[in-house]
């Protein structure tokens, strides 16, 4: 939502935008490498499912008397564990399972919201994101959480790459595949939960998938792709917020539109 300059005065506007940029840039940097794994390991639908459970997380968080963001994070982590377990059962195809859980979570969230009328929830804010409403605490959480997530990713990097080639091969060569798979799912859940604030339930996986997909066209090795994904995400956040400011368009969707344009641009480099 583009801010109304006449209401708050220019100094405050600058701070709005600074905070939004700081949050968006921190998120884009962290989302880049994770987005690569989402693309390589086909986790896009998994990310969507976690995002769709966010509304339920908000409701449960409010009922439990904790921050909605913590509710989202807790539910996302629980969902990641459940999905990890469910996919091990192999009764249903992975996308079927995700399709069930994803929409069940979204529907339950909406129903729960309507039942609890005394809760004041900004539904549009959660669906579309509200990056201009982030405070400095949110910024600190994004940068701190992002740094921790990237540190964990860096420690597991060789195992995760080996798994991306082939899980059996990685296990036969002594990598702890089960642990790395679990940690990756939890970290993606963390990134999704944090990104919710910025782009909202509907668009959250786009911040993971689109920059990484764009980076593929520019990369010859996994590390290059991770760095490019962060860089493209950063460019999308800056140009998207700039565009949102300039054209008075909603911030989250503007960032995603910018990312899509960058994706298109990157395809020109496809050999």
């Amino acid at each position: 939502m583009a801010p109304n300059a006449s209401m708050d005065g220019n100094a405050t506007m600058d701070e709005f935008l600074t905070r939004a940029l700081a949050a968006g840039i921190g998120l884009a940097l962290a989302a880049g490498p994770f987005g690569c794994f989402v693309v390589w390991r086909r986790l896009a639908y998994f990310g969507d499912t976690l995002a769709h459970s966010a509304l339920l997380g908000v409701v449960l968080g409010m009922l439990a008397g904790i921050e909605p963001s913590l509710g989202i994070l807790a539910l996302a982590l629980i969902m990641a564990l459940l999905l990890g377990w469910g996919q091990g059962q192999k009764r249903l195809a992975s996308d079927t399972l995700l399709g069930i859980v994803s929409h069940a979570a979204l529907a339950c969230g909406l129903v729960a919201l309507s039942l609890l009328e005394h809760l004041r929830v900004n539904l549009m804010g959660w669906l579309m994101g509200d990056i201009l409403a982030v405070g400095w605490t949110d910024v600190a959480v994004i940068w701190g959480g992002g740094a921790l997530a990237l540190l964990a990713l860096w420690r597991l990097w060789p195992t995760l790459l080996a798994m991306t080639v082939d899980e059996d091969l990685a296990a036969a060569e002594g990598h702890n595949v089960a642990r790395a798979r679990l940690v990756l799912m939890l970290l993606v859940a963390l990134v999704v939960a944090v990104a919710m604030k910025v782009v909202g339930v509907l668009l959250v996986t786009s911040l993971l998938v689109i920059p990484a997909a764009a980076a593929r066209a520019l990369s010859r090795n996994p590390e290059q792709m991770a760095l490019w994904a962060s860089g493209i995400g950063l460019a999308a956040v800056v140009s998207g917020l700039g565009g949102s400011w300039r054209f008075d368009t909603p911030a989250g969707p503007s960032v995603v539109v910018a990312a899509v344009l960058l994706f298109g641009l990157a395809q020109l480099n496809r050999r």
Partner: peptide, 11 residues
């Protein structure tokens, strides 16, 4: 068999 996804840049 090994199926390395096209999306994974690996020499």
């Amino acid at each position: 068999k090994l199926s390395v996804p096209d999306s994974f840049p690996l020499s």
